[in-house]
Amino acid sequence: MARLNDDAQWIVLMGFIVSFSLFFLGIVINQSTVVGQTTAEGVLEFPKNDILDIRSEVLQSSKITVAADFDDVKKDISSIALSRKNAIVSFRVTQAPPGSTYTKIIDIHYNNGVTAYNETTNY
């Protein structure tokens, strides 16, 4: 009777192991294709330059002494911010109380639907 030669059984075993590992590898690769498209959106959304621009304009316009002119400038800044930058902007300049180191108190309000920004500056 021929003796059973079982020297090459590892080939069959390796076949099983390789095919099953390929199968699971396929699943893993399929899962990983969805990763890797996110952007740093939160950072991009923050309107830093818009706020800085508005702030600079407001601080400059606070030097206007004629009340009617100041109201015009205020309206213009609000309308331009709303139509161009899609942000609601309003501000108010009040005189600082007597004895204060500062001359004016400036309140700025900015809201573009995502970022709301409020500031009170002693100027």
Binding site: I88, S90, F91, H109, N111, G113, N118
Partner: peptide
């Protein structure tokens, strides 16, 4: 879409 209540003028704007 958003609504904003301005703390300075207390006016509400809806966009």
């Amino acid at each position: 879409w958003f609504s904003d209540t301005d703390p300075i003028t207390s006016k509400t704007t809806s966009v």
